[in-house]
Design a protein around this nucleic acid. Structure first.
Lengths: 347, 347
DNA sequence: TTGAAAGCGCTAACAA
DNA sequence: TTGTTAGCGCTTTCAA
């Protein structure tokens, strides 16, 4: 009773029901050619033994009917939105979703994706801006794969991505339109923003630089690097605000960073606008009211899964889908307070 | 090139290297008794073919070195904290984590847990207050399992749970101490709070009722039911605030509900205190500043995984671990404004 | 040190 | 309608 019991196998069921393994298998799969009598006996044995077929053994002959999704950071609510959409797309299909977390360094992406492939999933959805295209191409030869958040267009895998050029442009135009000149960009480490790498963050950064220059504000360009989470962002933003020439607005590369920046702004007691990216749920909370860019996470997740199912079904032509973002303007951004007026008002 | 390529197998590697399958297997597992020369040839073939052993095929002979975790709601940040702890506990072990989402009805818990078991995971961590103990006992005979957030003590599976009696008591004492008498409890549907079911929510509710009665406030008892998410909570709270006798404080059964309630309070423009449970990250944000109960999600997740590994290693005696919660008092709770004073002040 | 062969749980021809 | 049997990819005795 204390020992681990052996899983009943199809053989056990067959013996209990007094039939062959093949017969049980047929009943399981509702295959053609089983008498009602046999069906009943087998069903009874299955219930009696509490038998469940092993997906792994099944998969050795065909499909596992399992899809894998790799998620880089569960703390980031945007990924949760993607996941929600992916889950929804699988309702009423025979497929089951398993998730592999890839928290940690950029190498974790490879590890998590491989872990899924090694487990014989029928297809993979991954959010890994940093894994190399060549590596993905190679993987895609064996396992269908859809990448979310990549701007490279491969023939081997499909992509679903938001239009980051447009999204970042919306933010910059909004801030510039409000009258901000001293706008800082709070983003992640260099590896995630390497020029030409095609990552969302690299594009948001490039657009920031381009717009600032186009507006003749290159002297105000200020790129601040930080870690992935809110805490790191708060620390970096605090430092920025305490520096010689604090900005009047901060464009954070994603909402988690923006939340951290908002906290820094609050603690510092200054009047600095903050804009984010993704429109995570909490951004709409009255006490936060974060201006941000909505890129329809749920729909992206849902679309990714549908594309994957199409690939599994045999589609050969690659699909690259771009989602249009929209600006959601909230209280966290407002016109800058002129330094003189502010000083006068305070004095 | 367009077609799906066949996965290389150990047989392919053997043929390429000109050795037997057994030899390849030995090299793979670093087993004793392989010459350096053979090792090298095999390694070369592995790289050349980009070969990766299949976990499923491996698992048919032994362990899969995969642990499964079932998560009911990715939108709830508390579960993310658990997951973070679980992931951390697996660093430097040969185990890999896969997650099965169980969004939806209470039946989804069964489905997700079974999905993990069917995939031959070596053990399961689950957060399912509603699945029956008998069912779990039965499952635990075959697959080691650790339940998070259950107050029932089974000999078949281990449990990791917060002390909900103490946690709820902390909240009630805090609100009563501030002078609140009209305290409402915002919680989920009846099935999750059935008396004696041992779910965290049933206990929080029971403590609420008990403390209100003990304080002679049974006339002010008000239990409001809502859905799982923030949106539902906001709607229910809005209704509550618009009713004849709105409370001066709301004790929400968990932070997501509290966030929704806070929003409702804000929109209604009233002065009502809100307390939550879990201490999700955003609760500390200045614009939210939610009074809540910290129950160390990370540590619970980490502990659950460690207990699971112990079970897999052979421990037979069940362990039931209770985590002590602490109250985190923030701005969202404050002394009630007497109705008359408030009216006078406004006039 | 190496390889042959049996077997893990299941499916799917094919035979009976 | 039912059962026999040959694999699926891998590990692991056991012989050579």
């Amino acid at each position: 009773m204390r020992e681990q019991k052996r899983h009943p196998t199809i053989e056990d069921v067959a013996r209990t029901a007094g039939v062959s393994r093949a017969a049980v298998s047929k009943v399981l799969r509702n295959a053609y050619g089983v008498s009602p009598a046999m069906k009943e006996r087998v069903a009874a044995a299955i219930v009696h033994l509490d038998y469940r077929p092993r997906v792994a053994a099944r998969a050795m002959r065909g499909a596992s009917f399992t899809l894998g999704i790799e998620i880089p950071d569960f703390g980031n609510h945007f990924f949760t939105r993607l996941l929600g959409g992916a889950t929804r797309a699988l309702v009423d299909t025979p497929y089951q979703l398993i998730i592999a977390p890839a928290e940690g360094g950029s190498q974790e992406g490879y590890r998590a994706i491989e872990a899924l492939a090694d487990r014989q999933v029928d297809g993979i959805v991954a959010i890994s801006p940093l894994v190399s295209p060549e590596w993905l191409e190679r993987l895609a030869e064996r396992t269908p794969i859809v990448m979310i958040g990549r701007h490279d267009a491969s023939t081997g895998y499909d992509t679903v991505v938001g239009d980051d050029v447009e999204g970042a442009r919306l933010v910059l135009d909004h801030l510039l339109g409000l009258g901000h000149r001293h706008i800082a960009h709070l983003t992640r480490s260099e590896d995630v923003t390497a020029p030409g790498s095609g990552t969302p963050h690299s594009i948001r950064l490039a657009v920031y630089l381009e717009r600032m220059r186009a507006a003749g504000l290159e002297d105000f360009v200020r790129v601040v690097r930080t870690g992935e989470g809110e805490e790191a962002a708060e620390a970096s933003a605090t430092e920025l605000l305490g520096s010689g020439h604090p900005p009047t607005a901060i464009f954070a590369a994603h909402d988690e960073l923006a939340i951290g920046a908002l906290r820094a702004v609050d603690e510092a007691g200054v009047d600095v606008s903050v804009a984010g990216y993704d429109d995570i749920r909490i951004a709409a909370q009255p006490g936060i009211s974060l201006t941000t860019v909505n890129q329809s996470g749920e729909e992206m997740g849902e679309r990714a899964v549908r594309l994957l199912l199409e690939r599994i079904a045999g589609r050969a032509e690659p699909v690259h889908e771009v989602f249009a973002p929209t600006l959601v303007s909230r209280r966290s951004t407002r016109a800058p307070v002129p330094a003189e007026t502010s000083a006068a008002g305070a004095g």
